[in-house]
């Protein structure tokens, strides 16, 4: 139904891009402000257009592969079609429960991730600055880091008094280690010349920390936060198996236990979109905090 519309749009989307770039100089009577804005944001617009086109192409490919049930080594025979997923999406958005799933998951991610950032970043900074702390904590962290979220489920249930806390704990673990490791990495890359210069100028420990170490490792901290956010969403399914009631991870899991492929795909896409959204938020925060790095 939507496929013909989808088919035409990439050409439409691609076509105006080229002439549009050429228009501003040929039409000087047009508001020069708009032209200027256009020129300034040309790169971003281009990215947006190509990005949209590629997403649409992805949808078309998905649609065609599933409609014709393509089999070439990988089999699309029983993969739900985008339209089937859309149908379960329209059903889901009219269901207040689905919104509840999403809101609860977002809350869990928010709390778990915030705690991970609040603990991980300072700990990483301290570990990077003081060797003894590094030597004490690093081995433990390295042992715990590779343990996948799903393996934590039984321990998390036993450790915490309520299930909600267990779930937040697992998302916390997921984002904590990437944040810690990246912060640590950022600290090791701080230019010692800068530190020495600050010392020569009479800076104390606290000011060196505030003025040199922290800003210098910020880019890596934000890399850690972005990666950590991704892993937090990855951990979500495992965590929400515990709740047995709410959360988008649980929604996906329940769809699996009732073998409803369209709902499984819907859950996956919802997690993907939410993950993308939260990464964008972090990137925006990064640009606010580090204006000198905006590209």
């Amino acid at each position: 139904m939507s496929s013909p519309a989808l088919m035409t749009s990439p050409e439409q989307a691609a076509a105006p891009a080229a002439p549009a770039a050429a228009t501003p100089p040929s039409r000087p009577e047009l508001s020069s402000r708009a032209a200027r804005w256009f020129r300034l944001n040309q790169d971003r617009l281009r990215g947006l257009l190509i990005g949209t086109a590629s997403l649409i192409l992805f949808l078309i490919a998905w649609h065609l592969l599933t409609t014709y049930r393509v089999v070439f080594f990988v089999k699309f025979t029983n993969v739900p079609a985008p339209l089937a997923v859309y149908a379960s999406f329209t059903k889901a958005i009219h269901d207040p429960k689905f919104l509840m799933h999403i809101l609860l998951s977002c809350r869990r991610i928010f709390i778990g991730f915030s705690l991970a950032a609040l603990v991980g970043v300072p700990l990483g900074l301290i570990m990077g600055r003081f060797k003894l702390v590094h030597e004490i904590i690093f081995p433990v962290a390295e042992v715990l880091r590779p343990i996948p979220a799903i393996a934590w489920v039984p321990m998390a249930i036993m450790l915490w008094p309520t299930n909600e806390q267990s779930i937040v704990f697992i998302t916390f673990l997921g984002s904590f280690f990437p944040i810690l490791v990246n912060t640590l990495h950022g600290m090791t890359l701080v230019d010692p010349v800068l530190v020495r210069a600050a010392k020569c100028l009479g800076a104390r420990e606290t000011s060196i920390f505030r003025e040199v170490y922290f800003p210098a490792s910020l880019p890596h901290i934000f890399t850690g936060l972005t990666v950590g956010m991704g892993v937090a969403w990855v951990s979500l399914i495992a965590a929400e198996m515990i709740s047995g009631q709410f959360g988008i991870g649980y929604f996906t899991w329940e769809a699996y236990s009732l073998v409803q492929y369209a709902d499984i795909a819907l859950g996956m896409i919802a997690i993907g979109v939410l993950g993308l959204g939260s990464s964008l938020v972090i990137r925006a925060a990064g640009q606010l905090v580090m204006p000198w790095r905006s590209r």
């Binding site: 039984p154 198996m241 515990i242 236990s257």
Partner: peptide
């Protein structure tokens, strides 16, 4: 009524969650 796999449900029951 909530959904839990046998593994998760058993641990939860043991912990009286």
């Amino acid at each position: 009524l909530v959904s839990q796999t046998p593994e998760v449900g058993s641990t939860n029951l043991q912990e009286r969650k």
